[in-house]
Design a protein around this nucleic acid. Structure first.
Lengths: 214, 214
DNA sequence: TTCACTTTCACTGTTTACCGTGATAAAAAC
DNA sequence: GTTTTTATCACGGTAAACAGTGAAAGTGAA
């Protein structure tokens, strides 16, 4: 009995590479490949009963990113496993992966053997995270306790993002259909929470966190 | 007669992918693959007379990056062609590639067909740059003329730097031993000159220009 | 089902930023 | 040697940001 796999990656060449690696393995059947997560979500909607064992996916993709894809797929079919393959290895992303209950992670510079091992491990019901990733994760957990207890809520992120885009309080209120007073509250809280003094500080924070582009 | 190719990429999986794509093409012979540029440079030193037609390389790699590799290889043997394959597409990098006389560029999300076309074109003696890249390059050249004529004076830079550091007008005036009115003038001129709306815009500009650290 | 957090809103001040308009002396460019 | 740019300062008005305080409804987890 073959396992059914789906591969998602917006880098076509990489996709071709994965395909040719997996095609040499006789017990894997590639059901579908796509260049973004949206295709996969639609495919699942159309074929709800098709057995899918594993989705191999990149993280940064247009439309539906890897983590969102993982979430959507598992909501509808919790037996689907997901293996993330990416070249990024920043601690926050890894944190994010683990929080979202991804089944495994292999960096893009891994050997072919490691990829196959990861797939086998995950299909066997276990999780697979490459050694490097575990190290980064742990190191981060220890150093994070001190600095980064600051967590912004969704709304706060909405507001700080718009502030950093040079909108005034009134304009932000209009865009979010909220009272001007509400936005002023948020700005005030953000300034206190982030220990900054004014718009300049908020803007720098938004940039640092990647809420806006340079 | 086969063409001799070398492939360099620190992402092993991607390397495997390229290999499997090129192995189906009978007229290309993969002489060597490596995960960084250093290997290739050493190989050339040891085998100076081996005919190499094309080096396919990533840009960001450990030890010797793609652009440096291109330079070193062509110094010793100008007939070697180089094709860069990367997922980055920021204007500065493209500028860099063209200045360093790379023979072609294909993004990593390109189709297999485009890769093969690029290889054929380059081996035929021409250069190949993917359409997207040309667009980005041109757009950058045009937009730069307008933006980059903006030159801030020393004093203006002093002021915008302090603004981005979250100081108020009065504080900046004190630090620079100037009148509060003077600083207000500068802020006003900066906002007009840089076509921004407020402190947030000034802060982003200061960051972009490297006047302050993130 | 509490309890904490989030989201939303309101009022009242004070301070600062933003805008227009303009002036003067010195330095730099033409 | 005149013109342009730079650096400096001034005033008055409006709009916005900043600060303190408080409060109510909804979410969600312990």
């Amino acid at each position: 009995m073959k396992y059914n796999l789906i591969i998602v990656d917006d880098h076509k060449m990489f996709l071709d590479g994965l395909l040719s690696i997996l095609n040499t393995e006789s017990n894997y059947h590639i059901v579908l490949t796509a260049k973004d997560g949206e295709h996969i979500v639609k495919y699942q909607e159309i074929n709800p009963n098709e057995k899918i064992d594993l989705v191999i996916t990149d993280i940064s993709m247009p439309k539906v990113d890897g983590i969102t894809l993982n979430k959507i797929l598992k909501e509808k079919n919790p037996s689907i496993k997901t293996l993330v393959v990416s070249m990024h290895n920043d601690p926050q992303m890894i944190d994010n992966l683990i929080e979202h209950d991804v089944d495994g992670y292999v960096p893009k510079n891994a050997e072919k053997q490691e990829l196959l091992l990861a797939i086998e491990t995950i299909l066997g019901g276990k999780k697979y995270f490459s050694r490097d990733i575990k190290d980064i994760y742990l190191e981060n957990k220890f150093s994070k306790k001190k600095e980064n207890t600051i967590k912004l809520t969704k709304r706060e992120i909405d507001v700080i993002t718009l502030i950093a885009q040079e909108f005034t309080t009134q304009e932000i209120a209009d865009q979010l259909f909220l009272s001007k007073h509400t936005i002023e509250s948020y700005r005030k809280n953000l300034i206190a929470k982030l220990s900054v003094r004014n718009l300049a500080g908020l803007t720098k924070y938004a940039l640092k966190m990647g809420y806006i582009d340079a």
